[in-house]
Amino acid sequence: ITIHVNGVTYHFDNPEEAEKFAQKMAKTYQLKMEIHNGEFHME
């Protein structure tokens, strides 16, 4: 699972971890999250 946050790329093997991380980042930084081709993009 690949997550892009403001141009920084994070890779996770565990989908649950990826989702937790994505939600935490979105909440902490008030980010808008989109999913493209199974990759999370946040800005």
Rank of each mutant, 00 (worst) to 15 (best):
A22E: 02
H11L: 07
V8W: 12
D13R: 06
L31S: 05
K27Q: 14
F40N: 04
E19M: 14
G38W: 03
V8T: 09
G7H: 08
D13F: 09
I35W: 09
H36L: 11
E34P: 01
H41L: 06
F12Y: 02
A26H: 08
Y10D: 00
H4E: 03
N14W: 07
T9M: 10
L31F: 08
A18P: 00
P15T: 10
P15H: 11
P15G: 07
T2E: 05
T9D: 05
Y10S: 00
K20L: 10
E19L: 14
N37M: 06
I35M: 08
K20C: 13
E19F: 14
E19I: 13
V5G: 01
I35E: 06
P15M: 13
E39T: 03
T9W: 05
E17F: 05
K24F: 15
H11Q: 07
K27G: 07
D13H: 11
L31H: 08
E19V: 13
V5A: 06
K27P: 13
E34L: 08
V5Q: 01
K24A: 11
T28N: 11
A26W: 13
E16H: 10
F12V: 00
K24Y: 15
F40W: 15
I3H: 01
A22C: 15
E43D: 07
I3E: 00
M25Y: 03
D13E: 09
F12C: 06
F12M: 01
Q23H: 07
K27M: 11
F40K: 04
V5H: 03
G38T: 03
Q30C: 15
L31M: 07
N6T: 07
K27V: 13
H11N: 06
E43N: 11
M33D: 03
H4A: 04
Q23K: 08
Y10L: 04
M33G: 04
T28Q: 14
G38C: 14
F12N: 00
M42V: 05
M33L: 14
H4N: 06
T28G: 04
E17H: 06
M25D: 02
N14F: 07
M42T: 03
I1A: 04
E34G: 03
H36G: 03
N6C: 15
M42K: 03
M33S: 02
Y29Q: 09
I35P: 02
Q30W: 05
K24E: 15
Q30Y: 10
T28C: 15
H41V: 09
T28S: 05
N14E: 07
F12D: 00
G38D: 04
K24R: 09
I3R: 00
I3S: 01
F40E: 02
P15I: 12
E16G: 07
K32Y: 14
H11K: 09
N37D: 09
M25E: 02
E39I: 09
T28I: 14
K24T: 12
L31C: 15
V5N: 01
T2M: 07
V5S: 01
K24L: 14
D13L: 11
T28D: 15
Y10I: 05
I3T: 01
H4F: 07
V5I: 10
Y29C: 09
E39M: 06
F12H: 00
E43I: 15
H36N: 06
E16K: 10
P15A: 10
P15W: 14
E39Q: 08
H41G: 03
I35R: 01
N37S: 04
G38I: 04
A26C: 15
A18L: 03
I1K: 05
N37F: 09
Y29P: 10
D13Q: 09
E16F: 10
A26I: 13
K24D: 13
I1R: 05
V8P: 00
F12W: 02
M25F: 04
A22Q: 03
F12P: 00
A18N: 00
T9E: 06
Y29W: 05
I35A: 04
K20Y: 08
E39G: 04
H11V: 08
T9K: 14
A26L: 12
E17R: 08
K27D: 15
H4R: 06
L31K: 02
T2Q: 07
M42N: 02
G38P: 02
I1F: 08
I35V: 08
K24G: 05
Q30V: 02
I35Q: 06
Y10N: 01
T9V: 10
Y29H: 14
K27I: 14
H11E: 06
T28L: 15
I35H: 04
K27A: 14
M33W: 13
E19R: 12
K32A: 12
K24V: 12
Q30M: 04
T28R: 12
K32T: 14
E34Y: 14
K32H: 14
H41A: 03
